[in-house]
């Protein structure tokens, strides 16, 4: 597969909400094309009928009792916020 040409880095960076500089764009395109070429090896493996593994030891239906427990104080929870006011995180205006 022509992964090298397919890697539209602007589209991907947009999906990742990541602003790249023109220099990063050029550099990453070349480096990732090389990595993808190496990854292409996986196409040689016959995976017909093989189930995918998401976790080595899957555990299903992990439930916690629905009981309130002490959590972080408001002060602790907001301690790392870049901007805060009146016990809330301040963000740029999102609605006109």
């Amino acid at each position: 597969m022509a992964a090298n040409e397919d890697l539209n880095i602007d589209r991907i960076a947009n999906l990742a909400r990541l602003a790249l500089t023109p220099e990063e764009n050029v550099k990453f395109s070349a480096q990732l094309a090389e990595v993808l070429t190496n990854i292409e090896k996986l196409k040689q493996v016959n995976v017909d009928g093989v189930e995918p593994t998401a976790h080595a030891f899957p555990i299903y239906n992990v439930w916690a009792d629905d009981v309130a427990k002490p959590g972080l104080s408001v002060e602790d929870a907001l301690r790392n916020a870049p901007a805060q006011r009146d016990n809330m995180v301040v963000v740029p205006k999102v609605v006109e």
């Binding site: 493996v45 093989v50 189930e51 593994t53």
Partner: peptide, 15 residues
């Protein structure tokens, strides 16, 4: 499918 799903299947084989 070409990358992620295939990788998960090869992961099964490695395990």
């Amino acid at each position: 499918d070409a990358y992620y799903l295939r990788a998960q299947k090869v992961r099964t084989l490695i395990r």
